[in-house]
Amino acid sequence: MTNRFLVTVGLLISVLGCNGDKPPLDNPSQGTIVVAADESFHPLVTQLTSAYSGIYPNTHFKIVFKPEQEAINMMLHDSARLVFATRTLKPNERAMLDQRKIKGATEKIATDGVALIINKANSDSLVTMNELSQIFSGKIKQWSQLKGGNQTGPITLVFDNNNSSNLEFVLNKFNTKDVRNLRIYTTRSNKEVIDFVRKNPSALGFIGVNWISDSDEPLSVELAQDLHVMGVSPKDNPLKRDDYFQPFQEDLGMQRYPLRRPVYILSRETHPGLGGGLINYIARDAGSLIIRKLGLWPRIPYDRVINLTK
């Protein structure tokens, strides 16, 4: 009996010792996870994760900014728990999670817009979708070819990265398959796109609107200086200024701005962890106030109750 008792105690100690070697699972109020995101969402992701960690000090987010496809690949290969992206998973990507029996989650959190920015010296601040289509087909190459244009020189299209969500979105929007005949210049970030446009009157830059739409953020205000944000019309022959729309909150929410796009969070979480906590905070809690503050349109508005007393 004594030997059997000692063996049993030894096995229990061994099991407990093995379990003790495993790090505890994260949960909505503590832990560390990796979050990947396209660089065009830098202000959005930074503010949302910082606000969440302010509420739960024991939570930590390691944020990695990559071109959208690379960010999604990180999540698929278990190098990131969450991804902020402009699209859902493709069938072949979904199959990779299915093979590992990971259900995951997809949550739309906002409507975003790709902003078209030009140099302050360029007064051609209005453009139609038809004109943009002709620019991306190579039929329009000069600023003087635009209706009412007074800027001279070739149109230089400026994007943040060869594989960015901004570039992919615009090319898909105008069904552009071949860019070899287009005057395209790529930088390394949305901020560098802004800097390039400031220095080049012939540039037409494409950025995520959250970089310049937060009037309470000093960096956002600074970046928006000395630029014009173009108004875009879905009509081929707009007759008045009201036929053009900009990528700011009301025109995004009312679905008037034609270069709007969704913002999703993609998750590979397999337990009720920190990733799920962040998603709930953003989609169903006060996180939507931050989305609104950034000038985007939250999918689920945050209800604020105001009590009026005499």
Rank of each mutant, 00 (worst) to 15 (best):
N172T: 12
F174Y: 14
N175D: 13
T176S: 09
T176P: 06
K177W: 01
K177P: 02
K177C: 00
L182V: 07
L182A: 06
L182E: 04
I184N: 08
T187E: 12
R188C: 00
R188E: 09
S189Y: 09
K191Y: 11
E192Y: 01
D195Y: 05
D195E: 14
F196K: 11
V197K: 03
V197G: 06
R198F: 00
K199V: 00
K199L: 10
P201N: 05
L204Q: 05
L204G: 03
G205S: 06
G205I: 01
F206Y: 13
G208P: 04
V209L: 10
S213D: 08
D214R: 10
D214C: 06
D216Q: 12
D216P: 00
D216L: 10
D216E: 11
E217H: 09
L219Y: 04
S220D: 04
E222R: 04
L223M: 13
A224R: 15
Q225S: 12
D226Y: 06
D226I: 01
L227G: 06
H228W: 15
V229D: 01
V229F: 03
V232Q: 12
P234D: 15
K235A: 12
K235L: 15
D236S: 15
K240W: 02
K240Y: 03
R241I: 14
D242A: 15
Q246D: 04
P247Q: 09
Q249A: 11
D251R: 04
M254H: 14
M254E: 15
R256K: 15
L259D: 03
L259V: 06
L259E: 02
L259R: 04
R261C: 00
V263T: 10
V263I: 14
I265E: 00
L266V: 09
S267T: 12
R268A: 12
T270K: 11
P272A: 06
L274V: 04
G275S: 08
G276R: 12
G276K: 12
L278G: 09
N280C: 01
A283Q: 08
R284Q: 13
R284H: 15
R284C: 00
R284A: 11
A286D: 00
A286V: 10
A286K: 15
S288M: 07
L289M: 13
L289W: 02
